[in-house]
Amino acid sequence: MISRTVMGAGVGVALLAAVAGAAFADDTLKLTELSPDGKDACFGRVYDAAHLKSHPQQAAHLKSHPQQKVARIFFYYGRDPVSRPNEEPSTGIDSSYNGFMATTVRGAEAPEWLGGWCSHESEDGKTGPIRCGMDCDRTMASLKVDDKGRLIVSDVQPDLYLDAGSEDELGKAEYERQALGKDDNGFRLDPMPAATCKAEFARIDPIDPALGPPLRERLKPDQAFCYGRDYDAEHLGSHPDQLTQSIRVFRGPVELASFAKEGDPANWPSGADIAVSVTTRQKSAKVTQVYNCQGEGDQWRCAASAKTGDASCDIAQQEVFLRRGANGTMMLANPNSGLPIIDLCSKAAEGDTSSDDKVYRLEPMPQAACGL
């Protein structure tokens, strides 16, 4: 599918989507030790090679902590610095997470990160140690600020980025490879500008400006559209295992009327119908299939609908995935034989797509090109 397996997606987006909580009561952050002025606060420390050349005392730190894997660590107290508009319906609710940590281990190109909610461990929520919790009553870290304004981060567990019980599932050797090191605890972070943390978190999943806004913003609930591609002889000659000769993805009067009657614009694009028409090398006659879509992460997950044809099987198991492409294009993924280039009820439609018809880059076209 487009996210996770075919096109990739940021772990942080999925994590925050799973835990949507109440919005901050106002614009002021409550932990005054971390944020005396009520604004987003950033703390960090870097142990990478370039930094160590001019900071020999940190080289000595790593020498005396040979089992420390973390080379860079940043803690951000404030609003989510990672997620950005995606294809899921906008709830208008901020995440209840207010603490975010990013760590980069030695040799890694990008950080891992997670979020939690940080508060005082006391009945009144105003005194005592600061704990940042996560799902399943796990601890992300305990925090305190020293007399120089530096953030002391403790209680960081080796399995911070792993599922509970992963040691048994992975085995000892693989667990130790994926887990943080035994010396990855007790960090002392310097206060830094909020922009420094935002730049660090931006390294996790860099934004490609060419992608533009997500499809749910680019395409409106009451808007007809047509995307497609026709493959010439030269392309087909160099892709002998591709069945598709032409493909169109569209929403026309029928699909618009269906959403106007049964859909919820506030939940767009969930519940939206799209139609996909294809011709193949073997059959020049156009075959059209309707799909019903849901916003999921950075994609639309679209299941085949029985509104067209007289399928003799449960074709709702056949799916395709839409995602924004660069420069106004649309990407369509067909990882599991979800397109009507074959009989969706045949044995050939079971399992992974066997032909070279897995991913399409579609261009916007005039509506007439889709018969609208």
Rank of each mutant, 00 (worst) to 15 (best):
P335H: 05
S354L: 10
L151I: 03
T28N: 11
G271N: 04
K63R: 13
S355I: 00
E33T: 13
E123P: 09
L160A: 14
I152V: 14
A304Y: 05
G351T: 07
D183M: 01
K144S: 15
L34A: 08
Y161D: 04
M1F: 06
K307F: 06
E234P: 01
G165H: 11
S154C: 05
E33G: 13
G171S: 11
R361K: 13
L16F: 04
Q157F: 03
M134H: 10
D26R: 08
G99L: 00
A257N: 08
V13Y: 11
P111C: 04
I315V: 14
L339R: 07
S346E: 08
V290L: 10
T103A: 15
S54G: 15
H61N: 09
V320H: 12
W268S: 10
D40T: 12
R84T: 04
P364V: 02
Q282K: 12
G171D: 08
Q57P: 12
S35C: 09
A71E: 15
E112K: 15
N336Q: 12
T280D: 01
D27T: 08
G325L: 03
P85W: 00
P265G: 06
A14S: 14
C313L: 02
S90F: 01
P66F: 02
K30D: 11
G38K: 02
S277F: 05
